[in-house]
Design a binder for these strands. Structure first.
Lengths: 210, 210
DNA sequence: GAAATAACCTAACAAGTGTTAGTTATGCAG
DNA sequence: CTGCATAACTAACACTTGTTAGGTTATTTC
């Protein structure tokens, strides 16, 4: 490919550099597909079309790459979820708001972002120091959920016998678990999100009496 | 330690062999604690009090160890769950049966078995071939859940608008996710199981009208 | 056109990996 | 006492890993 570089400046460079972002994109995809362990710097480099040593021009260590990906991953879900909730007025039905938040989280994981799915996939496999570096960003997203749930519970829409922190851990844990088995050929993300909302909001028991 | 071996036979061997089971026990614990990647054969050997090469007297490869652990892990949960369900008569309330099954699964993971927790922890990190070897055992446990859920749905106890396979994936996924965050110092497994049952059976919305 | 900079390559390093072959110590059966 | 099985040890192998230092090339700036 790319026989000779351009002689004139006007022609956009033929061999455009991969660069920091290109490396991150490729690494995020590999991490999502294969997990943390099997993805070496040489694999990342090869997939990006460069050599392993070259990565150190953009990053100081492998951990630095992973930390960057983990952070971008959470920021992506966080933003999607925040905006989905914001689209509802303050007085909107609790069920509708929760549905939107669940849907946004699942879409970010399963549709939109390699970074988000990579985060969920490899967070438990990564060295402690890397996890620690990611904690503040993570806590911010958790706080967003806690705020939402607390508000809805205060408004009387949520049962009062469940601890908010525990409820959030249950919810996000359940949603993240879909990454292990969801197959787009067996159903849409939309339908999945709808089912999750149904189950979490109303349960699976047939209601006979109240 | 153990300066000299016994001269008389009567004294039970001072340096009792670690053996196949000892290696498996140690490996399961390490896998649960650290995940798959960071646990090398040398780490397992050291924790077991032997040398790395000695492991090959009992196992043909590292994969063989992991496969054994994964299998034992599922068999343990399966057995606990099956017996918990069996303790209920056929006509027992659906809610009670489901509660028992959820409780059994969570206890196996969080209380009882290093093998079960190791399974959940490392299954997603392990080579494809190892995962494949574990599939039959896994399918058997999944079938147990599918049978239970199908029966309850046929009896009219479960909502009819949820696919059984999907419901099972949601449930087990949610329960397994607890492994990442459950802290026995913040609450008992019993209470956790009870909350999970509450949420899954009846949802989190405050019921106003039917 | 010279100088500077950005982006990459090459080649090697020390450490750690799973695995193998050969050896050694112990306990029991004949 | 001999012979054998069990359960370990020792020492090496080929390979992969993250990382580093130094060199090369293309583009931009002056």
């Amino acid at each position: 490919m790319a026989e000779r570089a351009s002689r004139t400046v006007s022609v956009a460079s033929i061999r455009s550099p991969v660069g920091r972002d290109g490396i991150l994109d490729v690494a995020a995809r590999l991490f999502r597909e294969q997990g943390y362990g099997p993805v070496s710097l040489r694999k990342i480099a090869e997939a990006a079309g460069i050599k392993a040593g070259s990565i150190y021009y953009h990053f100081g260590s492998k951990d630095e790459i992973v930390v960057a990906i983990l952070d971008l991953g959470i920021r992506a879900v966080h933003e999607k979820m925040r905006q989905a909730v914001l689209r509802h007025a303050d007085g909107a039905a609790a069920a509708a708001i929760l549905r939107a938040a669940i849907r946004a989280h699942l879409r970010a994981l399963l549709d939109v972002s390699d970074y988000s799915s990579a985060n969920v996939r490899i967070f438990g496999q990564v060295p402690q120091s890397v996890r620690d570096a990611n904690l503040p960003t993570r806590r911010a997203y958790e706080a967003e959920w806690d705020n939402l749930l607390t508000r809805l519970q205060r408004d009387g829409a949520l049962r009062r016998n469940v601890d908010i922190r525990r409820l959030r851990l249950m919810l996000i844990g359940a949603l993240n678990a879909t990454l292990e088995w969801f197959d787009p050929e067996r159903g849409s993300v939309e339908a999945l999100a709808s089912t999750y909302a149904d189950v979490f909001l109303n349960g699976i028991l047939e209601q006979r009496e109240v």
